[in-house]
């Protein structure tokens, strides 16, 4: 069952667990009583050190700029992925010739692990934003493409039959049946493709960049700034969670007709 927001006991329980975890972490790293420390804070860091690092990142080093660059790259890749994925998905669904010819090539391309591709992409597009957009696109595209293609293929044939019996034109079938079901399949793939495009952008920044969260991570690693690594991982986690939550909101607005799926 889905917990309702009025279920305050559950929230208190969760908050208490989180506080206990943070306190234990702080204590084990010697942050509360220095003689009692089982962990070396160089490796384990501690909540207070991470907090201090976050303060430095946001108020002294303007990490917001990196966040927005990475988000922008991911978003651009996602939009390009949706446009091209839908277009090719439609083409595949409508043309047996195209789909039967290209299908093995598509799965071959999709099976390339993107980190392996990243150096080559930097080589093609340089260390600017375009290489990151390309990598984000290369991940988002396939999710949207396969969702569109298989989505159209899985349209109930009886729905198409009823349209034909009603003498609907091709254009009407497109507008009334094909496009609405494509939209719902895109949304089904959107949560995945949003996370994927973020991954693509960060991989690109690992390999070569001058700005962005991925760049900041590599930079901190190079200088052995373990607290900063923890802080940045937290930032990335929050970015990912925020995006997925945003997609969920949009999704539930557009897919009101669907039975609620509780994961």
């Amino acid at each position: 069952m889905k917990p309702s927001t009025s279920n305050w006991k559950l929230h208190v329980r969760r908050l208490a667990l989180l506080m206990m975890f943070l306190l234990l972490w702080e204590a084990l790293a010697g942050g509360i009583y220095p003689l009692f420390s089982l962990l070396d804070p160089f490796y384990s860091s501690s909540p207070s050190r991470i907090g201090r690092e976050l303060y430095i990142l946001f108020f002294q080093e303007n990490v917001l700029k990196d966040i927005f660059v990475t988000l922008g790259e991911a978003f651009a890749g996602l939009i390009l992925g949706i446009v091209s994925g839908v277009a090719l998905g439609l083409l595949f669904a409508y043309s047996e010739l195209v789909s039967s010819t290209l299908e093995p090539f598509m799965s071959a391309l999709n099976s390339i692990p993107r980190p392996a591709l990243a150096p080559l992409v930097i080589f093609w597009f340089g260390i600017g934003i375009f290489s990151k957009i390309f990598l984000a696109w290369s991940l988002a595209f396939f999710v949207i493409f396969y969702n569109t293609y298989l989505g159209i293929k899985s349209i109930d044939p009886d729905i198409l039959n009823i349209m034909r019996v009603m003498n609907a034109s091709r254009l009407q079938i497109m507008r009334i049946v094909i496009l609405p079901s494509v939209v719902s399949w895109i949304f089904a793939g959107l949560r995945l493709s949003v996370s994927y495009s973020l991954i693509g952008a960060i991989i690109g920044e690992f390999v070569g960049a001058t700005v962005g969260i991925g760049y900041q991570l590599i930079y901190a690693e190079g200088l052995l700034m373990s607290d900063r690594l923890y802080a940045l991982v937290l930032v990335v986690a929050i970015m990912g969670a925020t995006l997925v939550e945003l997609v969920k909101r949009i999704e539930s607005r557009f897919l009101r007709w669907r039975p609620e799926i509780i994961l």
């Binding site: 009886d158 009823i162 349209m163 003498n167 009407q172 009334i176 609405p180 079901s181 007709w257 669907r258």
Partner: peptide, 27 residues
């Protein structure tokens, strides 16, 4: 011609009334 199938073949993203008016919309 009208056609009723074993599985209802309603358009799941349309409300009941939008499903009923489908043929009139096509026309």
């Amino acid at each position: 011609i009208g056609y009723v199938f074993q599985r209802d073949a309603l358009l799941p993203w349309r409300t009941v009334i939008e499903n009923v008016t489908l043929g009139l919309e096509v026309r």
